[in-house]
């Protein structure tokens, strides 16, 4: 349970951090373009694609560690 809780906290901090720190540190600008896109726009295209990967990793760790509710059989 502890491992899955730590993974969850790390997931929340990572997703929140990416969204907040990106504009704060660099991306709140209209140029120079990144892959042809304005930097701020690019960041908000990138992070929704990265978030499922982060939370997918949390999911896999949680499943192996027997996280909250893992005793419930939901069928196929």
């Amino acid at each position: 349970m502890r491992t899955s809780l730590v993974a969850w906290i790390a997931g929340v901090v990572s997703v929140t951090g990416l969204y907040l720190l990106g504009p704060l540190l660099y991306f709140n600008a209209a140029s120079p373009p990144i892959l042809g896109m304005p930097p701020l726009y690019f960041w908000f295209v990138l992070v929704p694609l990265v978030s499922p990967a982060i939370l997918g990793t949390v999911y896999l760790i949680d499943r192996r560690a027997g996280g909250v509710g893992s005793q419930i059989d939901e069928g196929s």
Partner: peptide, 26 residues
């Protein structure tokens, strides 16, 4: 550009919901 808050909002919520929603369900 402030509109991008709305993209971030839900993803932060989903990350939080990973534990919160199963707890509520149980």
């Amino acid at each position: 550009g402030g509109v991008f808050y709305n993209v971030a909002t839900n993803d932060v919520g989903y990350a939080l919901g990973f534990l919160l929603l199963p707890a509520i369900w149980l």
